[in-house]
């Protein structure tokens, strides 16, 4: 049987774990080990040990809140078993109703970003203005400077919120683009077949 959730001990790591716990409760964004160490005025290695302790105590099936490594930092979220109740209490406008066009645009920005709207449009074959505006409003992408071309179009990147919504520790958790099936062989075969049928 799991021990009850009691962190009130005199062990120094337990004391640090309580401090880290408090920092994660007040933060609205994931905090890196370095940020936690700076705020707790302690060293990073001990903070990592304290996080290990918290991770064990706040895990799925044991607690209503779960500590997780997401978007390059550590953060609390609600346990999955409470998702239905949370859903009755809160709306989730960030990812609700994301269209196929929005997901494609997000994929372009996540894999190829920072990139500009013309670059997104070139890849998808349709104008990206309204989709980009919608993703900006949801906070899933953000401006990331301007391009170096003559027009200097605004470039976009995905935000830490994108990583949190999709439960990614970082962008490197995305599958490699080269591993995704582009159907290149099939496409080439079809094009070659068309070329062969064409009169010389």
């Amino acid at each position: 049987m799991d021990r009850p959730l009691r962190l009130i001990t005199s062990n120094p790591v337990d004391r640090l774990a309580r401090t880290v716990e408090a920092l994660l409760v007040v933060a609205s964004q994931p905090l890196s080990v370095e940020e936690l160490a700076a705020a707790a005025d302690d060293d990073s290695e001990r903070v990592e040990t304290a996080l290990g302790l918290l991770r064990e105590r706040y895990r799925e099936g044991r607690s209503g809140i779960v500590v997780e490594h997401v978007a390059g930092g550590w953060a609390f979220r609600a346990a999955r078993e409470a998702a239905e109740s949370c859903g009755r209490l809160f709306e989730r406008p960030v990812e609700r109703g994301l269209s196929a066009a929005a997901l494609e645009t997000l994929a372009v920005v996540a894999y190829l970003g920072p990139c500009t709207r013309p670059e997104i449009a070139r890849l998808r074959g349709v104008a990206a203005d309204s989709v980009v505006a919608g993703l900006l409003e949801r906070g899933l992408i953000a401006e990331a400077g301007r391009g170096h071309d003559a027009g200097g179009a605004v470039r976009y990147r995905v935000t830490p919120l994108f990583e949190r919504v999709f439960g990614l520790e970082s962008l490197s958790a995305l599958p490699r683009l080269d591993d995704l099936d582009g159907g290149e062989v099939d496409l080439r075969a079809r094009l070659e077949a068309v070329a062969e049928r064409r009169p010389a």
Binding site: R77, A78, R80, A82, A83, E84, C86, G87, F90, R92, E95, L98, A100, L103, E104, L106, A107, V108, A110, Y111, L123, R124, R164, V165, F166, G167, L174, P175, L177, D178, L180, D181, G182, G183, E184, L187
Partner: peptide, 21 residues
């Protein structure tokens, strides 16, 4: 096509992570 596959992966991921609050 690869971007479409990536978008499909994201959609699947979103479905799996739907219980995240």
């Amino acid at each position: 096509r690869r971007i479409r596959e990536a978008a499909a992966w994201l959609a699947e991921r979103l479905g799996a992570e739907g219980g995240r609050f």
